[in-house]
Design a protein around this nucleic acid. Structure first.
Lengths: 218, 218
DNA sequence: GTATAGATTGAATGGCTGTTCAGTCAATCT
DNA sequence: AGATTGACTGAACAGCCATTCAATCTATAC
């Protein structure tokens, strides 16, 4: 039983292609989350978008290309969320560090559908170099930004001796691991609790600058 | 190009079935790690084991059953590794906590092939209840054991006020997240460094009882 | 040595899936 | 209004894959 959405109409023909591509990517995300990567077919994607069977190959070179652009989209969205959080945060490194950490638990990013799709792509990453590169880039960009703020906090906050790279990598890993709980134990999972766990760790590492509630100190 | 292993012969006919099943499960793990979950076929599995095409359906009810038993096997192996580490460790809760943490970075468990297969199953978990349950059980059993030792360390070590459940869950999440680095950035990944990251976090939480090198203090 | 039972083979089968494309339809242009 | 261009459809196609099963092979029992 396919979910057929009411067919929305793009404004002009010029905007149609991008509109349809986005529609198909959204439907792909829905399908991967519902049926899994291995059982997502182009027919599912087309049905989910309320369009005809041949539609995907009309807008995308191939199924593989649709999947790559879907992952690309997901990665872009993830990056935008924490970059916007950074932009909104205070200018100090402590506030920036807190903003980045908190961003990982915003509903836009930390929800079961999106997390399922991330894990689906991670699950295929080893055998598909394109996915691996996109995933590695996502991690690297985030880790670099986190590393920068960690270095600053360590230098300015008097935490000499702490390994900034290790902490940045560890905090990123902690997030990805907490996401897994959302996927595997959805009933027991609580976004606020996961966020609190991340900040418990962060506040333990930087006790004079971060509270367990995720506020800046001092 | 299929890798055809030298065909080993089981001792007796009575032992044949279990021997073949194990052989096919091993081949399944190889195939998922190499080709990914979505492109693993029964022909691949049979070729990898050096046996004929119909062999899987002779020893397993279905492909799905083979996959379930593969995940089961993986989960059993994982549990055995940390339980053996626990058995070998000292009796004190600090030593037990350290042993469990270190076990996650033993080569038997923390290698790219096995990690790729874990992520492959996690990637399919949302849409396949059987996988989800097996994954959830794995997490729960580990988390319970970790929770027990955390509680003891907190009580005996004078860390009143720390949330044991949060720490246990966080440390498990940290491991899973660090594994992702091995999958996505194999060149940059270093098992010892990952281990050190886990112990950096643990030693920060229990500074009077765990060193950053993963030794018990006092 | 012969019979029996279980293990294994590999060809056949039927269903599913990605891709193609000739034809239809609607928006835009002249 | 008529022509043109691009979007979209859905049937057709070719290839792949899980599953079945009759035939073959091999170890054990008698």
């Amino acid at each position: 039983m396919a979910i057929v959405r009411p067919r929305e109409v793009p404004k002009s023909r010029a905007a149609t292609r991008e509109f349809r591509k986005q529609q198909l990517i959204d439907s792909t995300i829905d399908s991967i989350a519902k049926r899994g990567f291995s059982e997502t077919t182009l027919a599912d994607v087309a049905d989910g978008a309320g369009l005809s069977r041949g539609i995907v190959n009309f807008h995308f070179q191939s199924k593989e290309q649709l999947l790559v652009e879907t992952l690309q989209m997901l990665a872009d969205e993830y990056r935008e969320v924490w970059q916007k959080a950074l932009a909104k945060s205070g200018a100090g490194p402590v506030q920036r560090m807190i903003a980045m950490t908190a961003a990982d638990f915003e509903p836009a990013v930390c929800n079961r559908k999106k997390i399922a799709v991330w894990y689906a792509f991670w699950g295929e990453a080893k055998s598909r170099p394109t996915y691996m590169k996109l995933c590695a880039d996502r991690d690297n960009v985030y880790a670099d930004a986190m590393l920068t703020v960690c270095r600053q906090v360590i230098a300015e906050g008097g935490y000499e001796g702490l390994d900034a790279a290790m902490i940045a990598q560890g905090m990123a890993a902690l997030t990805d691991g907490l996401w897994l709980d959302c996927l595997v134990d959805p009933k027991g999972f609580d976004r606020e609790r996961a966020r609190a766990t991340a900040f418990l760790f962060l506040s333990t590492i930087f006790p004079r600058h971060v509270t367990p509630e995720g506020k800046a100190k001092g």
